[in-house]
Simulated assay, not measured.
Amino acid sequence: MTWLSDASAWLVWTVEVVVLVVLCAGFAYPVVAYSRNVLYRGGVLLLVAALGCLMAGSVLELVVDVTGAGALVEVAAYVAYAASGVVSVAATWRFAREFVTFGREGVEIETAGFTGGFERES
């Protein structure tokens, strides 16, 4: 690759990481500042934490690419990515746990109280 294509790739990667950092701060501020007004606060906080882990992994990976940091920093980036996945699953469970019950016959999902969607009522 040429120098110009390398520079543009670095620039795009840096812009992507900066946008991720801004999004993480933008989602975290209202949830923390106005937490009493947020429905499902625990689930939303977990989603923000997952985005924070994703952001941390991206920043660490950018540090590795820009400065040539060691393998330990790169491993930390991948640990942050894995933590983001685990926290995302926990956040999803936090939202869904009210509607899922485990019994002897298997898993039952409560759908009786919900109407709407895209189907037509004819």
Results as ranks from 00 to 15, higher is better:
10 W>G: 12
10 W>S: 12
11 L>A: 06
11 L>Y: 05
12 V>L: 09
12 V>R: 07
15 V>M: 15
17 V>G: 06
20 L>Y: 03
20 L>Q: 04
21 V>L: 06
21 V>M: 04
23 L>W: 11
23 L>S: 11
23 L>E: 04
24 C>I: 04
24 C>K: 05
25 A>K: 12
26 G>K: 06
28 A>G: 11
29 Y>L: 10
30 P>I: 09
31 V>F: 03
35 S>Y: 14
35 S>T: 12
35 S>D: 15
39 L>N: 13
40 Y>I: 07
40 Y>W: 12
43 G>E: 01
43 G>K: 01
44 V>I: 05
45 L>Q: 13
45 L>E: 10
46 L>E: 02
47 L>D: 00
48 V>Q: 00
49 A>S: 08
49 A>K: 03
50 A>R: 01
51 L>H: 00
52 G>V: 01
53 C>N: 08
53 C>V: 00
53 C>P: 10
56 A>D: 02
57 G>R: 02
58 S>N: 12
59 V>D: 08
60 L>P: 00
60 L>V: 02
61 E>P: 00
61 E>Q: 11
62 L>K: 03
62 L>N: 05
63 V>E: 13
63 V>H: 05
63 V>I: 11
64 V>R: 06
65 D>Q: 15
65 D>Y: 10
66 V>A: 13
67 T>Q: 11
67 T>C: 14
67 T>E: 10
69 A>S: 15
71 A>M: 09
72 L>W: 15
73 V>D: 05
73 V>Y: 02
74 E>H: 15
75 V>L: 08
75 V>W: 14
79 V>R: 10
82 A>T: 13
83 A>H: 08
83 A>I: 07
84 S>G: 15
84 S>C: 15
84 S>Q: 07
86 V>K: 07
86 V>M: 13
87 V>A: 07
87 V>M: 04
88 S>C: 09
89 V>A: 12
89 V>M: 11
89 V>R: 06
91 A>H: 00
92 T>R: 09
92 T>K: 12
93 W>F: 06
93 W>V: 02
94 R>Q: 10
94 R>E: 15
96 A>T: 03
97 R>M: 06
97 R>G: 04
99 F>I: 07
100 V>E: 02
100 V>P: 01
101 T>H: 10
102 F>I: 12
102 F>K: 10
104 R>Q: 07
104 R>G: 04
105 E>V: 03
107 V>N: 02
109 I>W: 09
110 E>M: 09
113 G>D: 05
113 G>V: 09
117 G>M: 03
118 F>Q: 01
118 F>C: 01
118 F>H: 02
119 E>L: 10
